[in-house]
Design a protein around this nucleic acid. Sequence first.
DNA 1: CTATGCAGTTCCATTATGCGGAACGTCGTT
DNA 2: AACGACGTTCCGCATAATGGAACTGCATAG
Lengths: 302, 302
Amino acid sequence: MPSKAERDDARNREDVAAMINDPNLAPADSVAFQDNQSTTPTTGHGASGTGTLGKAISVLDLVASADEPLRFKDLLSRTTQPRGTLHRQLTNLIDEGLLEVAPDQSYRLGIRLLRFAVQAWDGNDLRNVAAPHIENLHKATGETVHLGILQDLEVVYLDKVDARQSVRMHSQIGKASPSYCTGVGKAALAALTPEDACERIGRMKFHRHTDNTFVTRETLADELEDIRSCGISFDREEHEPGIHCVAAAVSAHDGNTVGGISVTAPSYRVPMETLAGWSDLVSQTAHAITKDLSLRMGPRRS
Amino acid sequence: MPSKAERDDARNREDVAAMINDPNLAPADSVAFQDNQSTTPTTGHGASGTGTLGKAISVLDLVASADEPLRFKDLLSRTTQPRGTLHRQLTNLIDEGLLEVAPDQSYRLGIRLLRFAVQAWDGNDLRNVAAPHIENLHKATGETVHLGILQDLEVVYLDKVDARQSVRMHSQIGKASPSYCTGVGKAALAALTPEDACERIGRMKFHRHTDNTFVTRETLADELEDIRSCGISFDREEHEPGIHCVAAAVSAHDGNTVGGISVTAPSYRVPMETLAGWSDLVSQTAHAITKDLSLRMGPRRS
DNA sequence: CTATGCAGTTCCATTATGCGGAACGTCGTT
DNA sequence: AACGACGTTCCGCATAATGGAACTGCATAG
């Protein structure tokens, strides 16, 4: 039933994809992937859109994944839902406090989410277990340490310890970054089963953030192979120019939670050799976290 | 992590209230209020539970507002839903990433909420507008400054600037506190229409956090009257012993968003007189924020 | 070693619920 | 004044949530 609207969408999306496309990108065999989730442009959460709740959440996701404030028509054009339906979903979300509408009729996420998130954050096992470890790692290196987890195609940062107090407080926490050009992202991808990683890579859209960014599925796959063999991942200024890091994967209990930790530093101050020298430390810390986590998970009765 | 301390509070609270037993407390006509929301103990969001989405969210709320990890049976006992229904709701929430299940089968909020919340947070108009002002207020006073908004019966803190970098980063941000015993809470309540305030007060449950906590609807209503007349609200160690603050209300555009700002300090270091001396400054800052906010709101086309 | 009870999961007929096309308001525009 | 774009409301229809009951698995007790 969503056939007409889908076609409209598809039109625009290919243009965008075409613009972004690096010459190296999109080899012949990748065409199978061109049709991504239409409802969740940047986020692309797994099995979204199923059931009433799913639809509602993908609307939330829609406004969440927008850089600019969206008005009703904007949302309408970005989804396959008919007007009436979308409108009702929006008002439902507003009633629940998950969405707010600014006086210019643009939709923003509601602050009620803040409360939920804080609970989620400080009840999170991985974060709690990792906290002392990343603190130690920070003390040992003196640099910024990140803890992130893989969420579909992106990495979201769960925690960090800053080298110096930087500009704004938890600037990064909760923020999502692409997995293919970050240390923890690549480490986490490499920790997945090769099939899983491959499947996800297939759904990625690459942006050349810097000259060093991996922008083809092949080179990324090779990189992951390297990471898999040596257990350490480097971001060689692939995401932000002048910033590089060492990272290692942390995987949790049931295997459906994978993440990583990293030590990040500006390249002008900390040379690559120093970073590489921290490899063992990072890797050991990552293993320690993984172990602690399974310890906490193992004993049933708390 | 203030969690353990909080739990201790909760245990003692009722005993303390019973011991102190203010004669003014619990007059005959207040019995009508005694039966509050049973499904949403601490949170008590307004019109929750309507529609499929509402039900789902109130389940979320249920696990959010629990101090201890909840298993299926615990949730079941705290809701009116039949087993099958609750179970399906839970699995739906898990599928959407809003909920996670620990290996001991206890439910936690999912980290997906983090991403949403960050968006909500830094897209929030009030916060953005207020940020420079509270920064200035901090510089002028040298003490901790809070920005909070009223959410039904509670205050959630949107932002803060710490006096010294305290223990953990955004310890307070996103946390909810009772409105009747906090500076910004009372300021915000006083900024509501008297009927609205009265209605909310009617739904409150009072805990005597300290000797100075207002624990009756009458004394609170009187206090609000005072605040309304002078435009400034004080927390005289009503929430935490040894901590007091000055606050003023900030109200937004359409009037459905009310909050406040406060300057908080330990009473041993900053006497009440100093605090009172900041009244004008706080009040002016609050007005400036309100004005800036309406400025941003007024012009339709951004 | 079977009986009993409890926690969690699955199933399926029923119907309440969300769906979505179309009509209606309401602005700003030429 | 007439138009057109954007937002809102309505209502018959069918999808999707409901909840009772049956099933599994795991304990502890008899």
